[in-house]
Design a protein around this nucleic acid. Structure first.
Lengths: 195, 195, 195, 195
DNA sequence: TATGAATGAGTCTTCATTCAT
DNA sequence: AATGAATGAAGACTCATTCAT
């Protein structure tokens, strides 16, 4: 537990994360990681054999860190609308935050044939779908949401969110865009005066 | 115009397009392009100084090839609903077509600092926004579309579409997803029985 | 004598012998030996400073293990012919056994400048020459062997034997070859009906 | 015919031959070859992708350069004894010449798994066997040689010769040894006063 | 004795780029 | 316009060897 080597791995991942966020995946070399960590060539290779190995572990760590954010709240009986507004607020902020994201790196990594049939991205997507399905069913059952087609609503929500995030890494997206998206999703789900 | 050199450039771009679609941007080398075209090293450099140059020209060509698909139809008085259904049908097909797209290459190219402040992507985005604004205003004015917030609708439409396209390059997206997206957009814009 | 360290050395040599037989000398690294023995880097270096050191000890051990196989028999008055036939039978088997020999490793080690003026190979050669000289003199004196030139006979016997062994490590030698060699040596030494 | 690249290849092979003769196969690096030829890294790789490639071509060239030295003489009716004495004289000199031979390199190369089932060594061996078979049959038919077993005689001749050559690369072989070997082979084949 | 993390040198290999022809 | 040999820099990867624990 907590051996020296483990600590080194944490350091490597932390420094490499910064590099990947800044330069994408393919432009980060093992040499870059050496310099960023202060490790020698051989020292780095002792822990990771390639940037892909480092990246995979980073992404897996991030994915595993995500927890079921809806389950608790539903269990506590929080109103569906309240939960929705909270998550949409978070989405809005994340869409606006262009920096510091691994978007480009993820795109390069998984877009270049590293997308095995059960990669982290796919697992993440499925987990997210289950969470939304839960919330949407809950909201509809309680009469808080309109009776929309659940799968369709999920697709629209998730892909418009992802679309903004990914495009944001390529060009300046209008700063009002996140607000627009969120607002329309609310309109779609929540009945009431807006219509 | 129409000199021999131009033809060679066309050939280079055509072959390079295939490489970029298959391998993304960063993994295509000048050597690859030489081999794909049958040109010698020196011969290729006579026309292009880097893969970035080739790629830029390819993207510009593609962007320029896009015309204002709504203007004509509006001028001819076609119903807004009809125009909408047509374009959504096209979007649906494009979302389903994962292969042969430059998504990954574009992401790598523009995501790595090549995204100058007036790059092709941004120009394309603006052009697209104008076209949609035109259509939405037209439809709302004629009472065919609900009086949605135009900018918001545009954002939702375009980014959900882009989100699916980009994600499709990274993992298998459910084949019903394009249908879901399109269907909700119709619901959003078109008043009537669907609700 | 018989300390713990000695046992470790024996283990190292035994495992390394397998590596040398399989991969020759130059392709065996200290890392390989670590893995083969289960020792850590530091642990191995405590006992040997290089693969050359290990190899030298292995070869010395093998050479020292060889005893004077003719002396006893001559002392016991066994017939020269009998002794000859026994040793040729052994030679024949060894020539046929391509595997498991250190031929390649020895060649690499001593062929690359490690052949000091009094190396194990030379000592072994001299020892072998003395043994044969003894036998040949014995046989000739007793009238069992033809009066061949002793040094010449020794050279022919030993180098044809070594030639087959060494070539056998490089390519498939005809399986009848050992028999041929042995048979001609018998013809050369033993007078009688064969002529 | 005679393009620039071909000349470069000849130079590379000539310089590399010297390196292989001096250092064996495994200790010659591509860097060594660069330095020996004055070529840059990239320049060398343009012609050969590994030392193994260079070595294979060198060995093939050498093997192909060997011609049927007996055929002509037999056709011209030269006496078998004369031919034999000539070739044995050559063998004697070659056995004595330790330097400048590729023995060690060949041993390392073919001993390390490069010995495909139809390697240059095997081809050379077969060719040599056919030549000797021709000569021996010729000599026996003409009554110049004793009626020895042809295959057996060939094996003894060739492997004792090879044995001396190979051992000569590992240690100082007695300078009289080549003479011994040759003399016994003459005794074996030529009838007459020697016995 | 033994561990295993760390170093640093050395080699391999690939490319962008140039240039004489 | 075009060829293809050549360069040199950069990055990947592996090892022998050391050292704090």
């Amino acid at each position: 537990m907590g051996k020296k080597g483990d600590r080194t791995k944490q350091i490597i991942k932390a420094r490499a994360l910064g590099l990947f966020a800044r330069k994408g995946f393919k432009d980060v070399t093992m040499k870059d990681v050496c310099e960023a960590t202060g490790l020698s060539r051989g020292g780095l290779y002792l822990h990771y054999g390639s940037t892909g190995e480092i990246f995979t572990e980073i992404v897996d760590d991030l994915m595993n860190a995500q927890r079921d954010e809806f389950g608790d709240k539903i269990a506590r009986g929080m109103s569906a609308k309240e939960i929705l507004l909270q998550v949409l607020e978070r989405y809005k902020n994340e869409m606006a935050d262009t920096q510091g994201s691994l978007s480009v790196a993820i795109y390069e990594f998984f877009g270049a044939g590293n997308a095995g049939r059960n990669n982290a991205l796919l697992r993440q997507y499925r987990k997210s779908r289950e969470m939304w399905r839960q919330l949407l069913e809950y909201g509809i059952r309680r009469g808080e949401f309109r009776p929309v087609a659940i799968d369709a609503a999920f697709d629209l929500i998730v892909f418009s969110y992802q679309g903004v995030r990914m495009y944001g890494a390529l060009m300046d997206v209008d700063e009002r865009t996140p607000g627009h998206i969120v607002s329309l999703i609310e309109t779609l789900l929540l009945p009431g005066g807006k219509e």
